[in-house]
């Protein structure tokens, strides 16, 4: 028996298998593609609305609004100053519009990730069985090369914003799910027992005790999700998402070094802004946990 060569399935069988699966999927796309597109259409509307709002408003107002948002989250003048400087530089180097598109994209993706992620995380925290079921799915979502799941998304939705959002959300939602789950599971058992002893219902326990105590951890998940959706923006530009990713892709294809670096740095700048602002917010949430008494 030949032990060197692996006894693989025959080449023609393999080809037929692939054709069969691809064919079936294509059938599915043809049958349900339009329905799915309709279902996801509100995402498109929301995204376009935010994009237009950011691009069509006077830049000074947008800048002020973003600075205000960062202040509201972090309450740190240093972070606000950094934000303003970075955005001014971005505008000066002609990347304002692309940056606004990217910010809109990241905002929508983060919003969707939060809406999906937190309830899923709660579900996982409350039932060990759903935890056991969902964990491997999350593992798959995080390790599967992102290009691979771009394929079915594009097959269903074609090129454009919506498939981009879906791809980014698939890539970016696992951390918020995981950290919501973790945050809730980390709530000390004795505190939960106290809530129970006072006669809390399951919902009261969740809203009054578990979620508030898990909030700093959940915020760390939101932070991760934002970072990952920013990273995915470049990849998503391959399926037609406009924004800072597109010039980067163009730069790769044409070996435009400066264009690539400039847009890359713009992504870095807004990543740092989002990161510092959300982290500062997370830290503020934990204020009460600081041991003041020795």
């Amino acid at each position: 028996m030949d032990l060197i060569e692996f006894p693989a399935m025959g080449r023609s069988d393999l080809r037929e298998l692939r054709i069969a699966i691809d064919g079936a999927f294509r059938e599915f796309t043809r049958a349900y593609g339009e329905t799915l597109e309709n279902i996801f259409h509100p995402i498109q509307i929301l995204l376009v609305f935010i994009e237009n709002l950011l691009i069509d408003s006077p830049w000074i107002l947008v800048l002020a609004a973003l600075a205000g948002l960062v202040w509201a989250l972090g309450r740190s003048l240093k972070i606000v100053a950094g934000t303003v400087l970075a955005l001014l530089a971005i505008g000066y180097f002609g990347m304002w519009e692309d940056t606004m598109r990217t910010i809109a994209m990241v905002a929508v993706c983060t919003l969707i990730a939060v809406v999906i992620g937190i309830p899923t995380g709660i579900l996982m925290a409350r039932s060990d069985r759903s935890n056991a079921t969902i964990t491997p799915i999350l593992d798959m979502m995080q390790t599967m090369p992102s290009f691979v799941y771009l394929i079915p998304v594009v097959m269903i939705f074609g090129l454009g914003k919506v498939p981009g959002v879906i791809a980014v959300v698939i890539y970016a939602v696992p951390p918020i799910i995981r950290l919501t789950n973790l945050g809730i599971r980390q709530v000390p058992a004795d505190v939960l027992e106290a809530a129970e002893a006072f006669g809390s219902s399951a919902r009261q326990k969740l809203m009054d005790v578990q979620l508030p105590l898990a909030l700093p951890t959940i915020m760390a998940g939101v932070n991760q999700t934002i970072m990952m959706s920013l990273a995915m923006v470049v990849v998503a530009s391959m399926i037609g998402v406009r924004g800072l990713g597109q010039p980067v892709l163009q730069a790769i294809n044409n070996q435009y070094f400066t264009l690539g670096v400039m847009n890359g740095l713009a992504i870095v700048a807004i990543a740092i802004i989002f990161d510092r602002a959300t982290q500062a917010y997370g830290k503020r949430l934990q204020k009460h946990l600081e041991a003041v008494h020795g």
Binding site: V191, A194, A197, S200, S201, Q204, L213, H288, L289
Partner: peptide
């Protein structure tokens, strides 16, 4: 539990995210 009992714990088991007043009102608020 709500109407007939109150409980005090060895490790206090206070709600760390609530102030003293909010901890104390917990039983009544729920």
């Amino acid at each position: 539990r709500r109407q007939k009992t109150g409980m005090v714990f060895q490790k206090f088991a206070l709600f760390p995210h609530r102030t003293v007043l909010e901890n104390t009102t917990y039983g009544l608020s729920i």
